[in-house]
Design a protein around this nucleic acid. Structure first.
Lengths: 149, 149
DNA sequence: TATAATTCCTAGTAATTTACTTGGGATTCT
DNA sequence: AGAATCCCAAGTAAATTACTAGGAATTATA
């Protein structure tokens, strides 16, 4: 029941892009360095996010990536589904999948898996990148440090 | 974000035991056959469940396994946690784990993972084996077939 | 126009985890 | 005594994950 590095690195990268939203393209290498991930690997992840229409890119020197929409318009759910596929604890509980299992019709365990699926999706679809930005602000205000100007 | 066969086979096996609760020990082979799983493999799973105090066993001929508590006293959460470990989408979100990450303190993505973790645990802790038995009864009543005596 | 900085693309591979298989010992009922 | 069962440990095959490697295409800027 663990997410892969795709989802983890990917969400963090998107969060970084969100923080720079509106400030022009950010080279992937910057983000990769910050996260101690190889840029080649992060590239593969962001390629998927681009294909899904969540980020745009500018090629060439001074190029980079940026969110394709405002942070408040991108949910964690969209990001995770892009990278990990439909989120479900079993194949039989994947939405819109033509997986079949002979039990299917009367399967009580499937009912359990579907409940897990729905609850996870409800959570991730309810959090936007903007929410995360706001949350981070809150965290750094409550951490016991005082920030003086 | 998929469960392994441990959780899937294990929950189904426990559900079978629940249906036979109070009727004496059931040989594992019966359940394994029913589920088209090798008995040796299912044995390994049930050994864990036994160690966790969820099932009891009787050795020798006419022996087998049985639930250690009433179906209404065993939750899906207990079963899945026994078999899969604490349920969390990332290591940093595992409860009672002394995993550390340098971000940790101000990590907004961790906040997301914790929300997912909590929502999954809430679901699985709220479903008992008895609930599943009741649900199955409901399913077979609503499936379009009529059962005449 | 040359150079550097970047995205884009594909193939390969190392590491890890999962999902078993194998085989035999111990116990208990009949 | 024999059959049916649980108990236990080690090994292995298959799949998945997590990268690495390397180079082509594009574009800003000096």
């Amino acid at each position: 029941m663990k997410l892969s590095t795709k989802g983890r690195y990917g969400l963090r990268a998107m969060f970084e892009l969100a923080k720079y939203y509106g400030k022009g393209p950010i080279p992937l290498r910057n983000i990769a360095n910050k996260q101690s991930v190889s840029d080649n690997y992060l590239e593969q992840l962001i390629a998927v996010l681009k294909k899904e229409g969540l980020v745009n890119s500018v090629r060439g020197a001074q190029g980079g990536y940026m969110l394709a929409k405002q942070p408040k318009e991108i949910t964690v759910g969209e990001i995770l589904r892009a990278l990990e596929g439909n989120i479900a604890p079993t194949d039989c509980a994947v939405e819109d999948e033509e997986f079949t299992c002979e039990r299917e019709k009367h399967c009580v365990t499937k009912v359990v898996w579907v409940k897990i699926r729905d609850s996870v999706n409800e959570v991730i679809d309810s959090i936007t990148l903007q929410d995360m930005i706001d949350e981070e602000k809150k965290l750094s205000n409550n951490d016991g440090y005082m920030y003086y100007i």
